[in-house]
């Protein structure tokens, strides 16, 4: 059972503003979907190893070689806001 409080907690973790009028619908959606995926609880998985990659590969490494970077102008051309060669964000409070 997923509560509205759970949904608000998840929304805050995921940094998504959740207006009051959407809370009910989303709580129902998530309850339905989580209810569906709960069928996995039926399986005995005690000795089963998890699979992160279906095609097992290891040791993909790069050499310690410097390659060209973007220019400051190229990097900042993407930015919604920029200032003094930097990406500008609202004042951060620590």
């Amino acid at each position: 059972m997923i509560t509205k409080k759970d949904v608000q907690y998840i929304a805050a973790l995921a940094r998504v503003d959740l207006p009051e009028d959407k809370l009910e619908g989303l709580t129902k959606n998530l309850t339905d979907i989580v209810g569906y995926v709960k069928q996995l609880q039926k399986l005995d998985l005690k000795d089963i190893k998890p699979t992160s990659h279906a095609v097992p590969l290891t040791d993909a490494l790069r050499k310690d070689i410097v390659k060209p970077s973007l220019s400051n102008a190229q990097a900042l051309s993407l930015a919604p806001q920029a200032k003094d060669g930097c990406f500008k964000v609202p004042l951060v409070i620590e």
Binding site: K83, D84, C86, F87, V89, L91, V92
Partner: peptide, 14 residues
């Protein structure tokens, strides 16, 4: 992250 109090914003250098 650098804080620019005069500009009321923060600036990021990656």
């Amino acid at each position: 992250l650098m804080h620019d109090n005069t500009g009321n914003c923060s600036l990021v250098d990656y």
